Amino acid sequence: MTSESPATDLPIAPHLRAWEHVLSKVEEMMVSGELLPGQRLPGERALAADLGVGRSSVREALRVMEALGLLKAQTGSGPNAGAMIVSRPTGGMTMLMRMQVAAHGFPVSDVVQTRLVLESEVMRTLSQQPSADLTTAVELLDSMDEPALTADEFLVLDAQFHVALADAAGNQVIAAMMAGLRASIESYVVAGVDFTAWPTTCTRLRGEHRGLVDAVTRGDDSLAQQRIIDHIRGYYQGVRSDR
């Protein structure tokens, strides 16, 4: 028997390739609790034998999981070697969102609508958390006060500021989605700049950003949500009017 020959005759769903079959089975093990975050997967040989696939199919499935941020592989031998389930796979979700944005070129209106949904919840959550750490967000606002910044530099910091608010809210899924959308956010805000009116626009954005933080620190969730909606829609309307 070669290393690529199935060690058993376990059936593989006809619509799945061998490595997808491995992913499906590992998912079942995680859902059932047989595999937990921080726990190491069985070795390649054992997985191949248990699932009835070749070791190369197991390796391919593990590479996919590692790329998605679900797995951390440690080479070598000993107690720390092998593949371990990662408890916070936000990096993989962020990468997946970025790749989807890059591949499909999501319409600006879809990105804006998604931002309205996500960031309204972020502002509501932050306003109800007196202990929320806004240090990074405020530092970014301070950086945006630098008069020598170009419009492009300012708007990159702008996108980072919105992601920092999502991080501070503590919802890992929303934070990962916002980070994944960041490149798309940057592209449409830069595309919408009227450079002839940039000094005025820049001043307005600075004020709106400070207003967001002010509403959060006051603990006024209604005001915070309304300000983020007005902020996002106001910029989008400017983008549309320039096109």
Rank of each mutant, 00 (worst) to 15 (best):
L205I: 04
G192T: 06
L68Y: 06
M177H: 08
V31S: 12
M178A: 11
H209G: 08
A102K: 12
T114D: 08
A67L: 10
V31N: 11
G76H: 01
S222Q: 14
Q172S: 15
A73N: 10
T2R: 15
A179C: 03
Q160E: 15
D110N: 11
V111K: 07
F106M: 14
Q39I: 10
M144D: 02
L155K: 02
D242L: 14
R243I: 07
L205A: 08
L10W: 09
L205G: 01
T2K: 14
H104M: 14
A168M: 00
S222I: 13
A159H: 06
G192K: 03
P37S: 07
A215K: 04
Y235T: 12
D110H: 12
L223A: 12
R204C: 12
E66Y: 04
M144S: 02
A48H: 05
T94K: 08
I229N: 15
R45T: 13
S56Y: 11
T135F: 04
G38F: 06
S77L: 10
V216A: 00
Q237R: 11
S56E: 15
G76A: 02
L126Y: 02
T90V: 14
G69L: 05
A197G: 03
R210W: 09
Y188P: 03
T90Q: 12
S120C: 04
M144W: 00
A13G: 07
G180A: 01
V163G: 00
R59T: 05
S77P: 03
T8N: 07
V22G: 04
F154T: 02
G91E: 05
Q128A: 05
G76S: 00
V173S: 08
S109C: 01
A102E: 14
D167F: 09
L212C: 01
F195K: 15
F154H: 04
Q172K: 15
R17G: 11
G82L: 05
E119T: 00
R98L: 06
L181M: 09
I174E: 03
M123N: 01
E4F: 04
A73K: 13
L157N: 06
T94N: 07
P107M: 07
T196R: 13
R88C: 14
T200P: 08
D152T: 12
G69S: 04
R182P: 04
G234D: 04
G219A: 04
G91D: 01
I228M: 10
P79S: 05
H209Q: 07
T136I: 09
D50F: 12
N171G: 00
L36Y: 15
T196F: 14
R124F: 07
V239R: 10
R182T: 06
T201D: 09
W19T: 08
L212T: 02
V189P: 02
D214Q: 10
S131L: 10
G78L: 01
D167T: 11
